[in-house]
């Protein structure tokens, strides 16, 4: 069953097309990563999916409710952590949760039970009666997540839930996302953190300048982009003239990163042959050499056209 179905979403602000004809579906029980660089249109898409922003064109269905025709029904099955949102800082953590619980129509007893259990998990139980004004960013973010979960939603929309948080808060939140997913719930996770997407998501969509570029499993993305396998070499002496490296002829795509050189190639074996040959003829030693599968990060940089940009330094070093 489709829990999220977006068809032909389009939104422009003045001359900027923030979201350009985006369509996708998310099945029940999937953690769907929505990945893209700053300004790609991730948050705008989430705002459209959660009914905050009206798209100029396109249709959204949440758990088979049409968002524009049955907005309340659609929102009842969704829990949202928006990008710039805040908790009510004049209310305590407890009051924040009770408010949301009442709106979702959770019974009084159930409300208290659920809130207590969640605050316990998030390490906020002792502070539940303090005003949220004094909470740290991480505590507020955790409380926001509790609020999103208060209605026991079918689908959770999270806009960069771990951005700017310390390791501990991040881990708690990631663990909770996995936990909630294990109960068969669907999660729409907006992020620009590739490692997070890699660790959490069943499916990843990459969006750039408002356009959806690919939707696939992280593993498949890596497999498809075989030209992004890398050979990482540390030479002794450390520096080697680019002209010499260009002579290897196997790959023109390489860059220096730290004290190592990184070669992108579809055929790592051939690169290794040419490098060893070059080293032998030039009297250069190899300190270390390893081949790596394409990382999700490189896939991401490649499809968003950033790989060659950042590698502007690639060839002309």
């Amino acid at each position: 069953m489709h829990v999220i179905k977006a068809s032909g979403l389009y939104k422009r602000y003045g001359n900027t097309v923030a979201v350009n004809n985006i369509s996708f579906t998310v099945e029940r029980g999937v953690i769907f990563g929505f990945l893209g660089p700053n300004g790609a249109g991730k948050s705008t898409t989430q705002r459209i999916l959660t009914g905050v922003t009206k798209p100029d064109a396109g249709v959204v269905e949440i758990a088979s409710y049409n968002l524009s025709r049955q907005p309340l029904k659609a929102r009842e099955v969704a829990g949202v952590v928006p990008e710039m949102a805040n908790v009510y800082v004049d209310l305590s953590a407890w009051e924040n949760l009770m408010f949301v619980g009442e709106v979702y129509g959770v019974g009084k007893k159930k409300r208290a039970e659920r809130a207590a259990a969640m605050l316990e998990v998030f390490g906020l139980f002792e502070k539940r009666h303090l005003r949220a004004k004094g909470f740290s960013k991480g505590m507020k973010q955790r409380l926001l997540l509790c609020m999103a979960l208060m209605g026991d939603p079918e689908v959770l929309f999270l806009d960069e839930p771990t951005s700017g948080l310390d390791v501990q808060s991040t881990l708690i939140i990631r663990e909770l996302i996995r936990d909630y997913n294990r109960q068969g719930k669907t999660i729409f996770l907006t992020t620009h953190n590739i490692e997070e997407a890699n660790q959490l998501c069943d499916l990843v969509a990459i969006i750039n300048r408002g356009e959806l570029i690919v939707v696939d499993r992280p593993e498949n993305l890596r497999k498809t982009f075989t030209s992004l396998q890398t050979v990482e070499v540390a030479f002794q002496p450390q520096f080697i003239s680019p002209d010499l490296l260009k002579k290897t002829d196997v790959t023109k795509r390489f860059k220096k990163q730290g004290d190592k050189y990184i070669f992108y190639t579809e055929h790592p074996g051939q690169v290794i042959f040419s490098i060893t040959e070059l080293c032998r003829s030039e009297g250069v030693d190899i300190l270390s050499l390893q081949t790596l599968r394409p990382s999700l990060e490189n896939v991401f940089l490649d499809v968003t056209g950033k790989l060659n940009e950042s590698g502007g330094k690639e060839n002309d070093r």
């Binding site: 710039m84 709106v103 926001l144």
Partner: peptide
């Protein structure tokens, strides 16, 4: 201003 209005729009209230 406080950033709570956007969330008010995401919970089931008309």
């Amino acid at each position: 201003q406080a950033g709570t209005y956007e969330r008010l729009l995401t919970i089931p209230v008309s």
